[in-house]
Design a protein around this nucleic acid. Structure first.
Length: 513
RNA sequence: GCUCCCUUCGUCUAUCGGUUAGGACACCAGAUUUUCAAUUUGGUAAGACGGGUUCGACUCCCGUAGGGAGCGCCA
């Protein structure tokens, strides 16, 4: 991992991620965090965290906890302690007072009702709603005693405010379109666009990387920087992530919370890789390690257009990562995944029928056919734990070749917790006809005589049996699979038998013979 | 409505004035196979539209269309 500074003379890069704890970590937010993190790590700078909790109504501690947990799960470590914005209200007020004293801000006695009326009028007349406060130039002595004022920034009415954005390029906003923004509410609370500037400055943030939805805020924030005489950070407004239909990502598209992606069985490394490729690229590289992403990441390679979220591609990537991950580690990821999977009832509600089936939901449906007593990921996890890590790990190698998500892996493990006598699904039941029963009986005798109980020995037995009977291997292997797993699809049957063990495997075969 | 932004295969993207417009996912067909996958071979598929500039435009400029974001005493 490169911890070398970009260049010796340049000041250290400081980026930040500033989520608002009014909900869990949105997947789009996760990507914003990732870009900030990658850039900081790439340059050997710092990646800071700020919790924007100034909306006291909607901010919740549980959301803070959830957001931090999601960032950790994604492997995005931040430097230092998170800064809580609300705790800095005094500092914000002090800066506002400084602006007031300098004449760069003024008290405005316009009431919410008056503002609403102005707005309605503007809309009725179809002209842009730009507040022109009479208090900008009024004599403070004429202020009404009963109205608590807001504090507005006194901004230029002519000229233009220019943002040289590292992604969007030069963005120009005429100052006449920008009204005197409120920096302090009538209750003394700082507003977002003001607090952000003060905090970014105080935290020493050099690069602001955030979603384009903040682009128009930048002009206003620039005015604050200018009023304070502070140096502007570099801005990079990255494109948003949309759902598969091009509309803003929402529940309808399957999932928006990062924790849901964990439940759906995506590995953090795979999600990182996928998210990094959304809006950013390094030539034709598709699958790369986090170290490579850090080494390669640069803002200049971020594109301008919005990207659509594609679960198929994420799943493919995830399959690659699953295959690369060690069995022991995979088991840990599986645990974390299942621990977050609720009941099927929880999952069916919000999801659009047209969006791809959620892997976790699919798993739950499958579990219901094998073990109806297990109704949630947590219950399933307990059943797996009863089987023991040794068996689970032994079953993983042949399973992970074919799984794209963790729930698929869990589904493949289901034969281990199926209870005898197995309930065969329709296709499997069909496979066990009279001929098959006869073959099974013949095989059972040979299996009982087997000296070794491992996949290759078992395969040799079956191959020989098939040959002497003049049968194709498939004619014998398929009924075996059906009897052992209750399904027509499973990992190679000989692996299944080896993992199941002699006693259980024979018992299952006898149940069907 | 006003302001700003975006537009290459279905999707993510490469291309930084000269390419048979490349890769990945998805899809289709073949090989392999005890099932499903994985693997492997091949294939379908794109510069929104209209004008310029230029010897030459996907690349630069203008317009049109479509999409997105923002316009709060929310963040």
């Amino acid at each position: 991992m490169s911890d070398k500074p970009h260049s010796k003379s340049a000041p250290a890069i400081v980026t930040r991620f500033a989520p608002s704890p009014t909900g869990t970590l949105h997947i789009g937010g996760a990507r914003t965090a990732l870009f900030n993190w990658l850039y900081a790590r790439h340059t050997g700078g710092k990646f800071l965290l700020r919790i924007e909790d100034t909306d006291r109504e909607r901010s919740k501690d549980e959301h803070v906890t959830a957001i931090l947990a999601s960032l950790k799960w994604l492997g995005l470590d931040w430097d230092g302690e998170p800064l809580f914005q609300f705790a800095r209200a005094d500092r914000h007020r002090a800066v506002a007072a400084q602006l007031l004293a300098a004449g760069s801000a003024y008290k405005c006695y316009l009431t919410p009702d008056e503002l609403a009326a102005m707005r309605a009028k503007a809309e009725a007349e179809k002209r842009p709603y730009v507040v022109e406060s009479p208090w900008r130039d009024a004599d403070p002595a004429t202020a009404p005693a009963h109205v608590k004022p807001t504090v507005r920034l006194r901004t230029a009415r002519t000229g233009e405010t220019v943002t040289n954005d590292q992604v969007q390029g030069r963005v120009v906003v005429p100052n006449k379109d920008l009204d005197d923004m409120i920096i302090l509410r009538s209750d003394g609370a700082p507003t977002y666009n003001f607090a952000v500037v003060v905090d970014d400055h105080d935290m020493g943030v050099t690069n602001v990387i955030r979603g384009v939805d903040h682009l128009t805020n930048t002009a206003r924030q620039t005015q604050v920087y200018n009023a304070l005489g502070w140096e502007l950070p570099a801005f990079a407004h990255i494109p948003l992530v949309h759902g598969g239909d091009g509309a803003k990502l929402s529940k309808r598209h399957g999932a928006q919370g990062t924790d849901e992606y964990r439940s759906m069985g995506y590995l953090p490394a795979a999600l990182r890789n996928y998210l990094a490729r959304l809006g950013w690229s390094h030539g034709d590289d598709e699958i790369f390690s986090t170290e490579q992403a850090i080494a390669w990441f640069d803002i200049v390679d971020v594109g301008k257009s919005a990207a659509r979220f594609d679960f198929a591609k994420l799943s493919d990537l995830n399959g690659n990562y699953i295959r690369q991950t060690s069995d022991a580690e995979l088991l840990e990821h599986l645990r974390a995944c299942l621990a977050g999977v609720g009941s099927a009832a929880d999952l069916t509600i919000a999801v659009d029928l047209k969006s791809p089936a959620r892997p976790d939901l699919k798993l739950l449906k499958e579990v219901a056919t094998v073990r109806p007593d297990l109704v949630s990921g947590v219950a399933l996890l307990a059943a797996f734990d009863a089987v023991g890590a040794t068996k689970l790990v032994a079953a993983l190698p042949s399973l992970k070749e074919r799984a794209r998500t963790l729930p698929e892996l869990a589904a493949g493990l289901l034969y281990l917790i199926a209870q005898r006598p197995l309930k065969l699904d329709d296709k499997a039941a069909k496979l066990i006809d009279a001929d098959a029963k006869q073959a099974l009986a013949g095989l059972i005798a040979r299996f009982e005589a087997a000296e070794m109980w491992d996949a290759s020995a078992l395969e040799a037995i079956v191959r020989e049996f098939a040959e002497t009977q003049g049968l194709k291997l498939g004619r014998v292997a398929q009924p075996l699979r059906a009897a052992l797993t209750g399904r027509t699809v499973s990992p190679p049957v000989f692996d299944v038998m080896a993992v199941l063990g002699r006693e259980e495997a024979l018992a299952r075969l006898k149940d069907q013979a």
